[in-house]
Computed example of a mutant assay.
Amino acid sequence: MAWVEPEIWYRSLPTFYAAADVLVTDEHDRLLLVKPNYRDHWAFPGGMIEAGEPPHVAAARELTEEIGLKIELGGLLVVDWAPPMGHRPSAIMYFLFDGGSVSSGITVDPDAEEIERAAFFPLAECVTLLPAHTANRATAAMAARASGRTAYLPVL
């Protein structure tokens, strides 16, 4: 391949979207999920990464914005990739960070403009509440937390 000016080369690269979420559990190993008011399904607290924002910063920001929790995040549990699908014209990268364990009695303050409800659920129930690709992240995240090794889950 011939040398190309950097600004031309960078413009030629494919783009993708990126989202960052947080796995928070309680003392019974139940997972904290949120029910966005703009979706039919539950999700991990988190959301889209803003331009120039590192994934872990986005995850912490979204956690605070959505349910008012300010938690020091632990390590990266899951990296996931999905191809363009439906209305999404580009691939998406997902980052799931460890938010540790909190008391099930912790006060969460869902942002009424975005979040209908937040609650803790056992992993087996999470798998039924989450879309299939997200349910895979829940199972992988719990295993990654136990093993200390990040999971990579590309959807091919």
Rank of each mutant, 00 (worst) to 15 (best):
G75E: 11
V108G: 07
E50D: 14
E72K: 01
S90R: 13
V79P: 01
I49F: 09
E53R: 04
D80Q: 14
R88E: 06
L32H: 07
A91W: 00
T107F: 04
G74C: 06
I49L: 06
G47Y: 10
H87L: 05
M93F: 12
S104H: 10
F95I: 02
G68Q: 06
M85H: 14
Y94N: 10
L33R: 05
G105S: 04
A58K: 03
S103A: 07
D26P: 08
E53Q: 14
G68T: 04
A58S: 12
I71L: 15
P110S: 10
R88H: 05
H87T: 00
R61W: 05
V57W: 04
G46D: 04
K35W: 15
G74D: 03
K70E: 15
W81H: 09
L73Y: 14
A82R: 15
P54T: 00
R39M: 14
I106P: 03
L33Y: 11
P45W: 05
E72Q: 06
F95N: 00
E65V: 04
L69D: 08
G100K: 07
G100S: 07
D98M: 00
E27I: 11
D109Y: 07
A51D: 13
W81P: 01
F95C: 01
P83F: 10
A91S: 13
V79I: 05
V34P: 12
F97N: 06
I106W: 00
F44I: 07
H87D: 01
L31I: 15
L73D: 10
G47P: 10
L76C: 01
F97I: 04
L32S: 01
M85Q: 14
A82K: 14
P84Q: 06
E50S: 14
G52M: 02
G75N: 08
L96I: 13
E66I: 02
A112P: 12
T25F: 00
D29G: 07
R39G: 01
H56E: 14
I49R: 11
S103L: 06
Y38F: 15
H87E: 02
R30S: 08
I67W: 00
V57N: 03
F97M: 02
P36D: 11
A60N: 11
L33F: 09
T64P: 00
D98R: 00
P45T: 10
L69K: 03
T107R: 13
L69Q: 06
L73F: 12
H41Y: 15
P45Y: 07
M48Y: 12
V34T: 14
L32E: 00
A91Y: 09
K70N: 12
T25Y: 00
H41K: 13
E62G: 07
A91F: 11
D40R: 15
E62Y: 06
A51S: 10
